[in-house]
Design a protein around this nucleic acid. Structure first.
Length: 271
DNA sequence: TTCCAGGCGTATC
DNA sequence: GATACGCATGGA
């Protein structure tokens, strides 16, 4: 990893990384694109650490970031110690995945917070990405940050009405209750086999196969997790009637990100 | 007006 | 165990 400290910024040169593809592909919901003189600039959060990050080709600027924060937080969050060239080489043995990797090869899997992912993907069900972002933003504005399970523990369906999250409010309340009480414990889930972890997560009302898979993939870096939503269902029916290739298994979730972005952005145009 | 959105719970067979 | 349907909300 090649980086240098210049003034208050960290400058990183990095391949296989594109901010638009990574921060606006439906895996994280708290990044906003802002105007700048760079190719693009995003402002957002990991937990409640905020960051403004810009990109010019393979040059990245972590604005107002100490070397310590960069190394301890952001290198981890953006998964910068993983060799995505190597992953894409493995994926590209498959024709469809090869196209997906070529279409948006700058996607990286963000190592997000478990709790934030749990709430975010409960909100995501039968919902669209712009509206998911708005609901999460209302929640964060209300508390001044993304609230913890303890902070939310007094909330009810009625008190959450301002979120306009519809039928999902009762699911948020159940997730809060189960996590705040310790019935669902992230540190225990982290040690479980993936099947045990799925079972545990599904015990929360409003968490089913898809949401639990997203929480494991995005919130616990379980790269073998493979969320199947309406788009991935289409990919599987069209390109993988006999199942996914065995060699992607350990990183199926990362492959899923390339496939999700590919089908969603090629199909939208009505091709 | 109707349809749809990174699904899930419930009823019914 | 599989399948059908309702669900809050808001944009297209």
């Amino acid at each position: 990893m090649k980086y240098q400290k210049i003034g208050n910024d960290i400058i990183l040169y990095q391949k296989d990384f594109n901010l638009d593809e990574t921060l606006d592909c439906g895996q994280a919901f708290r990044w906003k694109k802002i105007e700048s003189d760079y190719d693009c600039t995003y402002k957002g959060f990991f937990l409640n650490e905020n960051l403004t990050i810009s990109q010019d080709n393979d040059r990245f600027i972590f604005h107002d970031t100490s070397e310590q924060d960069f190394l301890n937080k952001w290198v981890e969050y953006f998964d910068l110690n993983t060799d995505y060239s190597e992953l894409k080489k493995i994926f590209s043995q498959d024709e469809t995945l090869k196209k997906a990797c070529e279409f948006a090869g700058g996607i990286r899997l963000l190592k997000q917070d478990f709790w934030e992912c749990l709430i975010s993907f409960i909100i995501s069900q039968n919902n669209n990405i712009p509206r998911i972002k708005i609901i999460i933003e209302r929640l964060c504005n209300h508390y001044g940050h993304f609230p913890t399970a303890d902070e939310l523990s007094g909330e009810t369906v009625e008190s959450l009405e301002y979120l306009k999250s519809g039928f999902r409010a009762k699911y948020i309340v159940d997730a809060v209750n189960k996590v705040a009480s310790g019935e669902v414990n992230p540190e225990e889930i982290r040690k479980m086999s993936i099947d045990e972890a799925r079972q545990k997560l599904i015990s929360i009302k409003g968490v089913g196969a898809k949401v639990s898979e997203c929480v494991l993939l995005f919130g616990m870096y379980r790269t073998e997790a493979f969320p199947i939503d309406v788009w991935i269902k289409r990919v599987l029916e069209r390109y993988y009637p006999d199942g996914l290739p065995e060699y992607i298994k350990d990183y199926a979730g990362i492959a899923q990100q390339y496939l999700f972005h590919y089908i969603r952005n090629t199909e939208k145009q009505g091709s």
